[in-house]
Simulated assay, not measured.
Amino acid sequence: MIAFSQQGSGPALILIHGFCESKEMWKTFVEQLSNNYTVYCPDLPGFGDSPLLENEISLETAAVLLQEWMEENNIHNPIVIGHSLGGYITLALAELLGHGLKAIGLFHSTAFPDDEEKKQTRNKTIGFIKKYGVDKFVESFVPPLFSDQHRSEQADQITELIQAGKKSSQNGLIAFTAAMRDRKDRFELWKNFQGPKLMIAGELDLAVKIDGSRRHQPYASHYHELIGTGHMGMFEEPERTLGIIQDFLKDVEIK
């Protein structure tokens, strides 16, 4: 079962949260975007209010579950934007549905697979979660997602995200950490996807390095770098990132 929120009317827009997040992270954006779009925010299995009944999952399986959820809710030809893990799943969904997506966006995400160093980090994450549990992991995981200069001013938001992240299930965190570690290279898909493509990158993002993001730029119809920003541009630069998405959506509708 996929829990989700739905607000507004108009063309379908799906916003997919990242790792250790939930649909509520998009609430400020939804308030604005729902004026012109039907905005859907699903909880991925194992996060928020969506259970993960198995102990393993792949990005491809997650994409199939979202495809079935779209069919159940009569969501057709949507624009899909994903944050981090949500971006990986957006690409898996684009691979599955092809022209069935009107446009895609990667928000602090990448089409590249993990390198060996990152895979080892994922393995350490799995070990930490198994040893110390969800709460301790979330408390250590969330703050470094913000750049140093934004961390203190966003203290209340970080606390809220930590509390939301603690709703994540242990098996969901472990399963999706492994799924991210083992994900395939989808850079060719990024290059060849025929619809409009948005990328929002953070200059100081420790999770998705800026050098890798810049390699996506020649194939993006809309590419934006957030100077002085980490992995959480929707909170670190809320007005700018909302404006970027609104401009992207307007251009998608023109096309």
Rank of each mutant, 00 (worst) to 15 (best):
S84K: 03
G133N: 14
T121D: 05
R151N: 03
Q170V: 11
K118R: 15
V142G: 01
A179S: 07
E95P: 09
D115F: 10
K118M: 15
H83M: 08
F146E: 07
N73K: 15
N171H: 08
I162W: 04
K130E: 14
A94M: 02
Q67N: 14
Q154R: 12
F141E: 03
L59E: 08
V138F: 01
R183T: 02
G98M: 08
E56M: 05
E60C: 06
S169R: 06
L161C: 09
S147I: 03
Q67T: 12
E116T: 14
I81H: 09
Y132R: 07
S169I: 05
P144R: 00
Q149D: 07
A178P: 02
Q154K: 13
I158P: 03
L173F: 01
T177Y: 05
Y132D: 07
K119C: 12
G165C: 10
G98S: 13
Q67E: 15
F137H: 05
I89E: 02
H99A: 09
R183V: 05
M180E: 01
K124N: 01
K184V: 05
L65C: 08
S147N: 04
L66R: 04
L106Y: 12
E95W: 02
T90L: 10
K131F: 04
T159L: 11
G172W: 01
S109A: 14
F146D: 07
G82D: 09
D185K: 14
Q157A: 02
L101R: 14
P113K: 13
A103V: 13
T61W: 01
I104D: 08
A63M: 14
H108M: 13
L85M: 15
L85I: 03
P113F: 10
F141I: 00
K166Q: 15
D135Q: 04
L93T: 05
V134H: 02
I162R: 00
A111K: 13
V142H: 06
G133E: 15
I126A: 01
F137C: 06
S84M: 09
N73P: 10
M180I: 12
G127Y: 09
D185F: 13
G165Q: 04
N123K: 13
E160T: 08
A155D: 13
F176I: 00
Q170F: 02
K131S: 08
K166V: 09
H150L: 12
K167C: 02
I129K: 04
E71K: 12
G82T: 13
R122N: 09
G127N: 15
